[in-house]
């Protein structure tokens, strides 16, 4: 990277509720084949925040603390994955806050087992309650401008529209919706959450104006998670720089790059 580009990115931070992050990549902790593999992927990604899930402690066997396997410098973002009602998501968020002493929560209220699409109505209801209780709410939701506005009105610290179904790796399915949200909500922190499959998907999300990308399976299920984590880091930086640079207008026909005059006869 050139000195100018480095200087530009070192000042260009992801902002979440007044907290600045140098990395625009947030990654998950699920589905890795080993703790070592997870840790090397986390290190390679440069991410400063990772998501974790809240579950019942098994009573029939001793369980080591999963959190001990995370790099202690990482910010931990607990999620409410697996919740199908606002009430369960609220209870899960409260438990996470008590255990971790963090006000951050990735709010996720699922509406359907096959698609894992969010239940936007329950998500909004939970967001309203959690914001009142002082949480920094980062909601996963369908890529819908009106819902985004309602979540921001409710006091959410960011909006996290999906690119595609969770774990699908399909990439950004509706780029127009992300562009519209970016244009209509220029001041909102927009993090594309779920559905990214490979580096180009992350770059596309960033080129569309996302402030960050949250992903899990794309890295964890890659043949070499650490290498994919590096690819994602670079893709997000590249996509961000391209967005800031302002791309050329698209045109249907060619426009010669070399002068038309002076060609030998």
């Amino acid at each position: 990277m050139s000195t100018a580009a480095t200087a530009a990115t070192s000042k260009d931070k992801l902002n979440i509720a007044g907290r600045a992050f140098s990395s625009r990549l947030i990654i998950g902790t699920g589905k890795y084949r080993s703790y070592d593999q997870m840790r090397s992927a986390h290190d390679a990604s440069g991410a400063e925040m990772v998501t974790v899930a809240v579950r019942r402690v098994p009573l029939d066997r001793s369980s080591e603390s999963f959190l001990d396997h995370l790099n202690p410098s990482l910010h931990i973002l607990p999620n409410t994955a697996g919740c199908y009602t606002a009430e369960d998501a609220i209870r899960t968020a409260r438990l996470a806050r008590e255990a971790l002493q963090t006000d951050l929560v990735k709010l996720e209220v699922i509406g359907d087992q096959t698609t894992l699409f969010p239940d936007n109505e329950q998500t909004l209801e939970a967001a309203r309650v959690l914001v009142k209780e002082g949480f920094v709410v980062l909601p996963y939701f369908n890529d819908d401008l009106i819902m985004a506005k309602k979540l921001l009105d409710a006091g959410c610290a960011a909006i996290m529209p999906l690119a595609a179904p969770i774990g699908s790796g399909l990439g950004v399915q509706n780029p127009a919706n992300l562009r519209i949200m970016r244009e209509q909500l220029p001041d909102a922190t927009m993090i594309v959450d779920a559905g990214v499959g490979t580096a180009s998907d992350a770059a596309i999300a960033m080129e569309l104006g996302a402030d960050g990308v949250l992903m899990n399976t794309a890295i964890a299920a890659a043949e070499d998670p650490a290498q994919m984590a590096t690819a994602m880091k670079l893709a997000i930086e590249a996509g961000r720089l391209a967005y800031l640079a302002g791309r050329m207008p698209k045109r249907l026909y060619a426009s010669a790059s070399s002068p038309l005059q002076g060609v030998i006869k």
Partner: peptide, 10 residues
């Protein structure tokens, strides 16, 4: 009583 801890997730 519900007793919870943290596991890997996305």
């Amino acid at each position: 009583i519900e007793i919870v801890h943290f596991v890997g997730g996305g």
